[in-house]
């Protein structure tokens, strides 16, 4: 088993993959911001935004519903929004008796709820697409150029590198626990909750000490190659005319969708 299975980058040589990571990052953010700004019930605009997203997916040489298939991670969170269906004032659509209480779904509430879910669903698909078409190191270069402080970029970059190493270590610890813990026939775990927490806490402590020791060794390895506190990198990216063009085009499309969403209904 190897932890790199959770790396979401899809290796392709498409037009989109070759774009400068800055363009991709800015366009993604712009798309999500515009999305959040779309009014409730702007169905045409929602549809247009999705079409734009699918177009990008095709241009990126990915399966048409690549992002949609991976977007269900937002589902649990939609529970948080369900209440607006009942509490937003409006014409009752559906009402029923529950106990002594009248339950009522209003039209405005339903509209708000569906709009929230769609906006969030579109946003996450765009984020999934960004991750699929941009290697994280390239994204980090983009962040650096977009003025994210060097130290933060460096921390994220170290984190990305050791994520996989430490996740492997955590998996080994979990497996060792699994191998030694007998379970009853009903799948009941043994021990009191305190004991179980202690075991988990000691595993976390163990992992923490190993990580601290590793950070010492990594620091030594950096020193051995002349590290003096400066975090130097080469920038492999240059904005080409094509990058500018793609950026402007995408921004125009996003603006168009926004306009579509704000036109008065005919």
């Amino acid at each position: 088993m190897h932890a790199n299975t959770f790396d979401r980058f899809e290796h392709r040589h498409s037009l989109i993959h070759r774009l400068d990571p800055r363009v991709k990052t800015v366009i993604t953010l712009l798309f999500i911001v515009a999305n959040v700004l779309l009014p409730d019930g702007a169905w045409l605009a929602f549809l247009a935004a999705w079409a734009f997203l699918l177009l990008l997916t095709v241009l990126a040489d990915l399966p048409l519903f690549y992002a949609a298939k991976r977007s269900f991670i937002v589902l649990p969170f939609t529970l948080a929004a369900i209440t607006v269906m009942f509490t937003l004032p409006g014409q009752p659509l559906l009402s029923w008796q529950m106990g002594s209480r009248q339950m009522m779904i209003t039209d405005a509430g339903l509209l708000r709820f569906v709009s929230i879910v769609i906006r969030s669903w579109l946003s996450i698909q765009m984020a999934i697409l960004l991750t699929a078409v941009t290697q994280l190191p390239d994204l980090l270069h983009a962040l650096q150029h977009l003025r994210v402080p060097r130290i933060l970029v460096a921390i994220i970059s170290f984190m990305y590198r050791y994520l996989f190493v430490l996740a492997d270590e955590a998996m080994r610890l979990l497996r060792a626990r699994e191998a030694r813990s007998a379970r009853g026939w009903a799948g009941k775990s043994g021990g009191t909750i305190w004991w179980r927490a202690r075991v988990a806490g000691h595993m976390v402590g163990q992992l923490m000490l190993r990580s601290l020791e590793r950070s010492d060794r990594v620091y030594n390895a950096m020193l051995a190659r002349g590290y003096d506190g400066r975090l130097l990198t080469l920038n492999p990216h240059r904005m080409q005319p094509g990058d500018w063009l793609a950026g402007v085009l995408a921004a125009a499309v996003i603006a168009g969708i926004q306009l579509l969403g704000r036109l008065p209904p005919i």
Binding site: R161, Y162, R214, R217, A221, M222, R225, Y227, L234, P236
Partner: peptide, 24 residues
């Protein structure tokens, strides 16, 4: 160093091999 996961601390191979020359 013995453990290559300590020696290779950058996300990409290029960045790791360039680390020494850059700091020189």
């Amino acid at each position: 160093f013995q453990n290559p996961d300590d020696q290779l601390f950058s996300p990409t191979v290029f960045e790791d091999v360039a680390f020494g020359p850059l700091h020189m």
